[in-house]
Computed example of a mutant assay.
Amino acid sequence: MKEYTVTATRVHGLWELDVPGVGVTQSTTAGGAEEMVRDYLDCLGVAEADTAPIAIVWHIAPEIDARIIEAREDAAKAAELQAQASRINRETVVLLKERGMTGRDIAAVLGISEQRVSQLSKAA
């Protein structure tokens, strides 16, 4: 399935959506951009218009564009680190339970709530 990387640029109060190799369409709102691209692809007879991956690259001003990219990259890193911490906590909960520790003690040692200990125990 083809992925579409769309360049979105603000022009005269509208979002111009450039779909490389396909053409250009517009959206009145940033939130409606993906839907407009899908409608455009559908009008052109693209079979996977409803399901094709669409990535929108926003072009507002160079200094803002860079901040948007930085924020998204940082958010992705944070999500990855959060997943890693959850995995490590899950494994650690199991190890601490094997040593006979209570949920309350495990929560105190790991700096998490007893409810979270319970959740991690069930997930492990």
Rank of each mutant, 00 (worst) to 15 (best):
T28H: 14
T28Q: 15
T29M: 10
T29P: 08
T29L: 04
A30W: 15
A30F: 14
A30M: 14
G31L: 14
G31P: 04
A33K: 05
R38L: 04
R38D: 02
D39N: 11
L41N: 01
L41A: 08
D42R: 15
D42T: 13
C43E: 15
L44Q: 01
V46S: 02
V46Y: 09
A47Q: 10
A47E: 14
A47H: 13
E48N: 12
E48Y: 10
A49Q: 05
D50A: 12
D50I: 00
T51C: 05
A52S: 15
A52C: 14
A55N: 15
A55T: 15
I56A: 01
I56L: 04
V57R: 07
V57P: 01
W58S: 09
I60P: 00
A61R: 12
E63M: 07
A66N: 06
A66C: 04
A66P: 10
R67K: 15
I68T: 09
I68E: 07
I69W: 07
I69C: 10
E70P: 07
E70F: 09
E70R: 11
E70C: 07
A71V: 13
R72Q: 15
E73G: 00
E73M: 05
D74Y: 12
D74G: 01
A75C: 03
A75N: 11
A76I: 06
A76T: 08
A76W: 03
K77S: 11
A78S: 08
A79Y: 02
A79F: 02
E80P: 02
L81I: 04
L81F: 08
Q82D: 12
A83H: 05
A83Q: 02
A83K: 06
Q84N: 05
Q84K: 05
S86A: 06
S86V: 07
R87F: 07
I88F: 06
N89F: 03
R90I: 05
E91D: 11
E91F: 00
T92N: 01
T92W: 00
V93R: 03
V94D: 12
V94E: 06
L96W: 00
K97W: 02
K97T: 05
E98I: 00
R99Y: 00
G100V: 04
M101S: 04
M101I: 01
T102E: 12
T102M: 05
G103V: 06
R104N: 09
D105Q: 09
D105Y: 00
I106Y: 03
A107M: 10
A108H: 14
A108N: 14
A108Y: 12
V109A: 15
V109K: 12
V109N: 13
L110Q: 04
G111N: 10
I112V: 13
S113F: 10
E114N: 12
R116F: 07
R116M: 07
V117I: 05
S118H: 10
Q119K: 10
